[in-house]
Design a protein around this nucleic acid. Structure first.
Lengths: 215, 215
DNA sequence: CGCAAAACTACCAAATTCGGTAATTGTCAA
DNA sequence: TTGACAATTACCGAATTTGGTAGTTTTGCG
């Protein structure tokens, strides 16, 4: 009957037409909707129930990144493929953070678009070569370093965790049902093992080196 | 003369042979070396001066991840393409952190391997679909959240930065050539603006919400 | 010019942290 | 069983931080 159901958001009419034709031709896809802005993304999707959304970024009303965020929040399983002219870090990473599943550029060949749609639909993450390189590099940079083992005991980790959450010794003692002096004893050990000498250093090291995010 | 120069590290002899033939056939590539382990990566590369290195992970002596790390450290411009059976998060992200430029799986079709080599050579980052999805998802998760603006003044940011570095009020005063009481005044403002009430909370919030990494 | 915000200084009192020393109890492994 | 280690409690004095109040000077902007 219809294969993969697609809708597209792009304010460029002729591009929408091109994609429309391309998609019709391909045989495996159905274009279930075509919109010049994503002001009504939610209802658009509710009506068309697409498998894949093709999304531009620069559009009047609401930009594509916001659109992606809305879709991802409300329809976690819909696959979103960015199709735009922008390849700057800011836009790329914003789109990814918002929940895009692929990111290709408008200068790509038609064949590649078709391929990208299939790939994003089947659980892949198609990216333009330069984009993929950016993504890999960014990940390389921010991936947490090999996390060292400071040999903290369970209790010490517990105490350090609460410290990172902003609790004072007294509060930690209360929370753990132990004495203020016991907390101090733990802290002394923690300082020793972490090679620090103050709460701030301990917290900074705990967050940076190890894993406490604390929101 | 020879197009793209390639060397491969893999302890599976028959796989090395397959890749060897595949590469010879393709016309655009030259196989300049083939090794069953990466114990001598550095000298191997010094001898063969490859454009692209194809790297397995599980090898006797030194594993491929370590090999990648060594290559990346000593030859920043060499392109490294992982070719392995592993697709678990740990191996994938370790390879990326070590500096791999692409990651494909051994069950891929020969055509895809050829394509991946070209792509990694021309500045792309070829990844198996599932790997690409993993990468994107991981990035989505750890990409820092939209950083809020707490309207800290220059001086306040400066003070907060030093606090994150573990300095005490007194030390900050010394570093900034201002009075201890001035530092206190700044801290009070910072606490107010960050909605916190202690050094630890301020540090945790500064690191998590904003951008201070300390060492 | 004049206002507002930022930067700076000061003092007091209370709360908290830090470094050192010391001791008890329980557990796990050599 | 003995020794290492974790968890616990305790006390002292010194250093540091926090909250409050109150000022002066500098700076940026309309």
């Amino acid at each position: 009957m219809h294969g993969i159901k697609i809708i597209i958001f792009d304010d460029n009419d002729s591009l929408r037409d091109s994609v429309s034709m391309l998609v019709q031709d391909s045989g495996d896809f159905t274009l279930a909707g075509s919109y010049s802005n994503c002001v009504n993304v939610i209802s658009n999707i509710l009506e068309t129930k697409p498998d894949v959304v093709i999304m531009d970024i620069d559009m009047p009303g609401m930009n594509g990144i916001e659109g992606v965020r809305l879709i991802r929040k409300n329809f976690p399983t819909v696959q979103i493929l960015m199709l735009t002219v922008f390849d700057d870090d800011e836009k790329v990473f914003a789109a990814i953070k918002a929940g895009a599943n692929g990111y290709i550029l408008k200068n790509a060949e038609p064949k590649n678009l078709i391929h990208a749609i299939s790939e994003v639909y089947s659980g892949g993450a198609p990216m333009a070569p330069g984009i993929a390189r950016k993504v890999l590099h960014q990940l390389q940079v921010i991936l947490p370093a090999e996390q060292k083992d400071y040999h903290l005991s369970m209790r010490e980790k517990e105490v350090l965790g609460l410290l990172v959450d902003g609790l004072s010794y007294k509060m930690i003692a209360g929370k753990l049902n132990i004495t203020y002096d016991t907390v101090r004893a733990h802290m002394k050990k923690i300082y020793e093992k972490l090679h620090v000498a103050s709460m701030t250093e301990a917290v900074a090291k705990a967050i940076n080196q190890k894993l406490f995010s604390a929101e």
